[in-house]
């Protein structure tokens, strides 16, 4: 149950792209065609599934306050959490390089489809963001961390797939010239993000919302939920989801 909740929460409610704007750069740069978007999305899922649990282990056994107690009594008071940025990014960069080498050696097919995206991923905010959120949300166990990595990756995958499909379709529309390309993509992403906000009530049924907001007060600047504008949100969601359906057919 805990797993299921985290799974849906990471995909829909705290969607990497729409709720926290992580991975925006590659999201905008690599979403011109559906096929490349799928490649990048798959690579993100893959790398996040590896790095989030790995960084969880690092955090748990080296970085946290008192995490070094397994070394002996005198280390029990060490707090190395200020090193977490450098450790996380080093892990991610090394893992990406390692994955690239391994995949190239054992599965040239997969390398051909994923390979060109792997270097991009080392500097993808979504990957580091996944590890940092894993740390700040205090995910409890290794399997939950793995779950969080995979489901955040799936969230990114869905987002980039949807925007790529819309961008392929929008080529045939008459967009005002100054908005073409980047401008309209921003605005569509904004509308999709409004749509995704409506998933906020999915797990709680809307009743426990207040309690959840309190616990997540650190991120209030990022995810602020205002029940008063629900009507507007639902309207926008309808239009967005209809568009997506058309494209997927």
């Amino acid at each position: 149950m805990e797993h299921l909740e985290l799974f849906f929460k990471a995909i829909f409610i705290d969607n990497m792209v729409f709720a926290t704007f992580l991975g925006m750069c590659s999201y905008l740069a690599v979403s011109k065609k559906v096929s490349t978007a799928v490649g990048l999305g798959a690579a993100v899922i893959f790398v996040m599934a590896i790095t989030v649990p790995l960084n969880w282990l690092l955090d748990q056994y080296i970085l946290q306050e008192g995490a070094l107690s397994w070394l002996g009594e005198e280390y029990a008071t060490y707090d190395l959490s200020f090193l977490s940025f450098i450790m996380f990014i080093a892990t991610i960069a090394t893992m990406v390089q390692l994955v690239e080498i391994i995949v190239e050696k054992f599965s040239p097919d997969l390398y051909n489809s994923l390979g060109i995206f792997l270097p991009l991923i080392a500097v993808n905010c979504a990957i580091l963001g996944g590890s940092l959120f894993m740390q700040s949300r205090e995910i409890e166990s290794l399997d939950l961390a793995f779950n969080y990595g995979v489901s955040s990756g799936i969230g990114f995958f869905l987002a980039i797939l949807a925007i790529a499909a819309i961008r392929e379709k929008i080529r045939y529309s008459n967009v005002p010239a100054p908005l073409r390309g980047l401008g309209i993509t921003f605005i569509i992403t904004g509308l999709m993000a409004i749509g995704f906000m409506s998933f906020g009530g999915m797990l709680t049924g809307g009743e426990e919302e207040v309690a959840i907001e309190e616990t997540a007060s650190i991120e209030t600047s990022v995810i602020v939920e205002k029940p008063t504008i629900e009507a507007e949100i639902i309207k926008v969601v309808d239009s967005v989801s209809v568009d997506e359906l058309e494209i997927k057919e």
Binding site: F18, A19, T20, F21, L179, G183, I184, F186, I187, T189, G190, L191, A193, I194, M197, V222, I223, V224, K226
Partner: peptide, 10 residues
């Protein structure tokens, strides 16, 4: 809300 940042930049 977060989405308005995107629309403002747009």
């Amino acid at each position: 809300l977060a989405p308005m940042a995107l629309i403002t930049v747009g």
